[in-house]
Nucleic acid binder design. Structure first.
Lengths: 221, 221
DNA sequence: GTCTATAACTAGATAGAC
DNA sequence: GTCTATCTAGTTATAGAC
């Protein structure tokens, strides 16, 4: 099935979904990146071929190279866009509020909030992180740099919260940060926009459990 | 680099790591699966070639097909082994104890405990789940079946705990289950055996935070 | 900006000798 | 149980016509 006489990089687009061919060149590019991100998220970066991306866009694989010089460039743009947005939001949260617990719960809300807009990017980041990092060259080193900056911002709030007595001091700050970070991002595995649970509900649940605990009755010791 | 006159399925093993060639056939097979699992975990299932697996074992790719009929069969065995072990442990925990909170914290400990033995398998399961599920055929349907059985076991304990008043009733059981499950497995991303934190420490931290909360002071309303 | 045609290569898998 | 040799199919990417 899906037979075509070309085994190479072609195949007439025939009845492909050629979407809005209007708009500026940069909008066109963004649109292509978005389509690719969805495919990367669904099947994985490597399992997604440039032919599939092109087909989805209603063009042929060769034409894709008018917009991007490689498949890596596309996934690069997917991840970079997400990381720039989320770090910017975190910085804004830090600047607008001082109370550690307030900042931290705002950061939790920001994290879950990105699930809607950046669902595909987050999925790719989680599933293909190891692979992209294993590629030769330093092209994806910024992934680790962004991760480090985000870690610093979280850790600072956790430690300040402990220092002022808002958070219990008998928990490892780094372990706590990782637990919070992972629990937020990993939600993309099952989160569905327009599903039973919206990101605000999920964030509230998370804050409730992590801050106050699941158990009833007296507090720890 | 790494140049050889063969572009096919060959390449003299030369100075490869040919390990213990002794032992029963089934031990040999298990050993190969283990080597493959490590590669799958590091680079991803698709990025790992049968040639790399063979090289790691000190044989040629063609020889691998004496043991397995396909690359998929190998990853199948990796995941199946892990899932069978963990579900068996969960069942034992349910059988040996009745108190919901005790069972649940035991399940948490079991989860983190598998990180050491099954680190590679868990990594593969997380990173390549979407891809394996997207493959045609029903070969990997058991992934979802195992997931469902595990979910039932956890949910039962959470709901019983709420019914007997051990856990607060104002949290969504399913959301709570997902949060606990994800937080445990995702730990493979950064967990290193023989690192600063062992699985017991991580499990204790987890139970502390999730059961009693991070905040100091009075309990939730 | 897209298509045609193809280059250059790598993947998983097989058949049969040893 | 391993190696030799090879097949088939699929991959990213390019060059130039339109």
């Amino acid at each position: 099935m899906n037979q075509r006489k070309d085994s190479g990089g072609t195949a007439a687009p025939v009845k492909a979904k050629r979407a809005a061919a209007t708009g500026s060149p940069s909008e066109r590019r963004e649109h292509l990146v978005k389509l690719a991100a969805e495919l990367f998220a669904r099947k994985g970066f490597q399992a997604t071929t440039v032919r599939e991306i092109a087909l989805e866009a209603g063009i042929l694989s060769g034409s894709l190279y008018h917009h991007f010089d490689s498949k890596e460039t596309i996934v690069d743009e997917v991840l970079r866009t997400f990381l720039e947005d989320v770090t910017a939001r975190y910085r804004a949260a830090l600047a607008s509020e001082d109370d550690p617990r307030a900042v931290l719960s705002e950061m939790v809300r920001i994290g879950f909030g990105t699930l809607e807009v950046h669902r595909a990017a987050i999925t790719v980041m989680q599933n293909d992180w190891n692979y992209l990092r294993s590629l030769p060259g330093d092209r994806f080193d910024y992934l680790v740099r962004a991760e480090d900056e985000i870690e610093r911002m979280w850790m600072e709030q956790i430690k300040r919260g402990q220092a002022v007595g808002q958070f219990r001091a008998d928990v490892d700050p780094k372990l706590t940060y990782r637990m919070m970070r992972d629990t937020i991002w990993v939600t993309v595995r099952w989160f569905r926009p327009n599903g039973r649970l919206d990101t605000t509900t999920i964030a509230d649940h998370f804050v409730k459990v992590v801050f106050d605990g699941l158990a009833t009755g007296r507090r720890h010791s």
